[in-house]
Amino acid sequence: MEARMKSVANSDVITAVQHLQKAIDAGGVDPLVLELVHLRASQINGCSPCVFAGVQ
């Protein structure tokens, strides 16, 4: 499987992702479901640091 993003994100993208995460957390979805979605998306995107970050 090949990673979808090959370049390092800039600070504007990181800030946008942080705001998106805050909105998702405020949505009322069960945190366990969110963790499973994050894990699967990380696997699909080939992001091993993201997979290991979710395991902690």
Rank of each mutant, 00 (worst) to 15 (best):
K6P: 03
S48F: 08
I24P: 05
G54A: 11
S42T: 12
T15R: 14
G27N: 14
Q43L: 14
A41V: 04
P49T: 04
V51E: 05
Q56P: 11
H38R: 12
V13Y: 02
S48V: 15
A53P: 00
S11W: 01
A9H: 09
V13H: 00
C50K: 00
G46H: 07
V37I: 12
D12I: 14
D30R: 12
A26T: 03
Q18V: 09
V17P: 02
R40E: 09
A23K: 15
L36M: 13
S42V: 15
Q18P: 01
V13F: 02
I24L: 11
L20P: 05
D25E: 14
G28N: 05
V55F: 07
M5Q: 07
A41C: 01
L34W: 01
Q18D: 14
D25N: 13
M1D: 05
G46N: 02
A23M: 15
Q56I: 13
P49Q: 01
L32I: 15
A3V: 05
E35F: 04
I24K: 06
D25P: 07
L39F: 11
D30C: 08
G28S: 02
S42E: 08
R40F: 07
L34V: 04
F52L: 08
L36E: 15
A53W: 00
G28T: 03
V33N: 07
R40C: 09
A3H: 03
A41L: 04
T15L: 14
N45P: 01
C50R: 01
V8P: 00
I24T: 07
K22P: 04
P49L: 03
E2T: 15
A9N: 04
